[in-house]
């Protein structure tokens, strides 16, 4: 049995905190202010002009750079595929040379942090679920490659300048996250992963996305629980994405988990950092004295594609 552990979770936010009132006023959203407030959103973080998602990735990795000496692989995920390329479209148009479309941030990150021994993997078609997808991919690598020591998982996104900062009725934030997966028993032991993709809904509108949310989320959670040999009653915490908390009021009732165990303290002050919410909230949970060794935590995400992913971890 190969045990894999998640450790050193870290994150970085966009350059500026912007109140929901300001963003509604400045046309960064569609939904009305009151609905956002009722959903729990108060502010979000927006990257400054010129800040690339890669810059946010570097900022997220910076606090944990002392722990990367044994990293053999980097899994770099983005929600938006355009954040997986640092080349400029205009340069491509001018030269017709596709190398401008092959300028990968993971390569730059490897070089920046001196991780020459680490190979690179890009992951950019799982939307908000990418960070959980990176855990699933990396865990699979540990099972397949006995010599693999550690994997650095990074997820980074920023919305293009001028974009609406709203998706499926949620307030979006720019940001990045990073953590290390290792065989060393520290941090959180990974108990199971589960993923579902329904490609037939690849172009689902917001209504369809929300319409399919509950039963698919329930299904992926059941799958993760089953893979871990657990039932929902064994879960001590649920660390969800920063989306409308009323959804989790309902899901927690369906699953039979007390709502006060749904842990998303960053929702109001951070917003929905499309693929990094789980990590932002997990960092907060790590600092919460109520978290005990042996506690089992469900990380859960839904995203475009449509994708649903869940990971169950256990506090060491």
């Amino acid at each position: 049995m190969t045990e894999v552990y998640l450790n050193y979770p870290s994150y970085a936010l966009g350059d500026h905190a912007v109140s929901i009132e300001d963003s509604v006023r400045d046309d960064r959203t569609i939904t009305d202010l009151q609905a956002f407030l009722e959903a729990g959103f108060k502010q979000h973080w927006i990257a400054a002009p010129g800040t690339h998602a890669y810059d946010l990735a570097v900022r997220a990795v910076e606090p944990i750079k002392e722990h990367l000496s044994e990293v053999d692989t980097i899994v770099y995920s983005t929600c938006l595929t355009l954040n997986g390329n640092m080349g400029l479209w205009d340069d491509f148009l001018e030269t017709r040379d596709v190398k401008h479309l092959l300028d990968y941030p993971v390569s730059h990150l490897q070089s920046h942090f001196g991780l020459q021994q680490a190979s690179a993997i890009g992951l950019n078609q799982q939307a908000c679920t990418s960070v959980l997808g990176s855990i699933r991919i990396a865990r699979g690598l540990f099972l397949a490659e006995p010599s693999l020591r550690e994997v650095l998982c990074v997820s980074a996104d920023r919305f293009p300048e001028g974009a609406l900062y709203e998706q499926a009725f949620n307030l979006i934030a720019d940001g990045a996250s990073a953590f290390v997966l290792s065989r060393k028993p520290a941090g959180f032991r990974i108990l199971s992963t589960a993923a579902i993709t329904n490609g037939a809904l690849a172009r689902a509108n917001d209504e369809e996305t929300v319409g399919t949310y509950f039963n698919y989320t329930w299904k992926v959670i059941q799958s993760a629980l089953s893979n871990a040999g657990l039932t929902a009653s064994a879960l001590n915490w649920v660390v969800p994405q920063n989306t409308n908390m009323k959804a989790w009021q309902i899901l927690s009732r369906i699953l039979g988990i007390p709502f006060d165990r749904v842990y998303a303290p960053s929702l109001s002050t951070v917003g929905h950092i499309i693929s990094s919410d789980n990590i932002v909230n997990l960092v907060a949970l790590e600092q919460d004295e109520r978290l005990k060794s042996g506690d089992k935590i469900l990380l859960c995400m839904a995203g475009y594609g449509l994708n649903w992913q869940a990971v169950i971890i256990e506090k060491v």
Binding site: D32, F36, E38, A39, F169, V210, G211, N244, K246
Partner: peptide, 10 residues
């Protein structure tokens, strides 16, 4: 809860 919060859901 769903009915009450639907303005924020969809």
């Amino acid at each position: 809860i769903l009915a009450d919060g639907i303005s924020g859901f969809g």
